[in-house]
Simulated assay, not measured.
Amino acid sequence: MAISLQKGQKVDLTKTNPGLSKIVVGLGWDANKFDTGAAFDLDASVFLLNESGKTRSEKDFVFYNNNEGGNGSVVHSGDNLTGAGDGDDEQVKVDLQSVPQDVAKIAFTITIHDAESRNQNFGQVSNAFVRVLSEETGEELIRYDLAEDFSIETAVVVGELYRHNGEWKFSAVGSGYQGGLAALATDYGLQVG
């Protein structure tokens, strides 16, 4: 049975699941029935971070246009343009044993594509979640349903995998940002042109 987390909670992943090495991180959302004149296109992105909380290079930014990072240890499933239907909208596979040693944290984010020009924000998004599954068994191990407390934000850091004493843990973050993907990328040490 999955552990259901609240914002700010942290939980052991590998310590409580011995032998777990390959996981799938599923992210999902629903757009509310607002007519902003344009369809919603939400995107899951992943940042591989060092001890200082920064990417080592642009290769540590994994998203629909760069769907592999960490020497192949993190693989994005590709872009879902609508978010329609039940279940995960986008997935990221992580081979925990193959993540480079100088990657201390893996941040999972959801952003709204062209949010400002489309006049869209996370106040118009509901049922956002992140969940961690065993790739081998498909069992859901951890789930974090984001509460509906966003308004003007255009990007959200939903959760983080991080190393602690040789084990992997998961943190339910749920922090919103204005400025979309560009603001997140800049915070994580990338040059945004």
Rank of each mutant, 00 (worst) to 15 (best):
V62Q: 07
F63R: 01
F63A: 01
N67D: 13
E68A: 10
G69W: 07
V74C: 09
V74W: 00
V74G: 11
V75Q: 13
T82D: 14
T82C: 01
T82A: 03
A84F: 01
G85Q: 11
D89H: 02
V92E: 12
V92C: 04
D95T: 15
Q101T: 14
D102V: 13
D102K: 12
V103P: 02
V103F: 06
K105A: 06
I110L: 13
I110C: 04
T111I: 11
H113S: 10
D114N: 14
A115T: 06
S117V: 15
S117D: 15
N119P: 00
Q120M: 05
Q120T: 05
F122D: 00
N127L: 07
V130F: 14
L133S: 12
S134W: 07
T137P: 08
E139L: 11
E139D: 15
E140F: 03
I142N: 02
I142G: 04
Y144T: 06
L146V: 09
L146H: 07
L146R: 12
E148G: 00
D149Q: 08
F150M: 01
A155D: 12
V156E: 02
V157F: 01
V157M: 07
V158L: 14
E160P: 05
G166W: 07
E167H: 10
S175A: 10
G176L: 02
